[in-house]
Amino acid sequence: MNPWIQFFRSEVGLSWRERRRALLPLVFFVIVASLFPLAMSPRPLILKLIAPGVIWVDVMLATFLGLESLFRQDYEEGVLEQWILSPSSLELRVFLKVISFWTVTSLPLIVMSPILILWLSFPVRALGILLVGLFLGTVTLSFLGALGAALTVSLRQSGMLVAILLLPLATPILIFGAHSALLAADKQNPRPALYLLATLFFLTVGLVPKAISTALKVSYEV
């Protein structure tokens, strides 16, 4: 078997073995989304207006929640050292690790989001745009979050620090993502927002793996 495919399978397999932990972000996602109708007002008119924002903020928080410890265990077990010392591309390995995280953690959020957003009186016709936006957004957020996890891998108790570091960086994704869904619900053209989101997606996927590998290497140099 190709070594890269073997590596990816082993990463996904590992997350699957610890699926109870991968399930936490999903449970968090569902609970937070259902808090809003309770706290604000169950009137459909209001819910429809806030639905995309609620889902997007919720997805963002749930993704970061799971990402904070992305490299922690590999770091503590000394496996990350072996990654860095491997005579192969660290960038590609990091890329596969983030994709495997996305598959196990963010994909279930995307699958769950139509159910939640329909609870919030969001029109069915705009679901397609919401899902496309969420796909682009969660991948981008996963890479950004992985960068935060890599920068703080050698620190203990870094959860809040990662959030503070990343949330400002993630706001453009939130703005374009939530607005594309809102525009679609309002029967306006959501494309410009989606295109901007796609730009961020390609920039992040292309450049951030390099930054993550540098951050990981530096954490061993000191």
Binding site: P3, W4, Q6, F7, Q82, S86, S88
Partner: peptide
């Protein structure tokens, strides 16, 4: 897993 890190098939 180590074999895949060292690029062995």
């Amino acid at each position: 897993l180590f074999a895949s890190l060292r690029q062995f098939r």
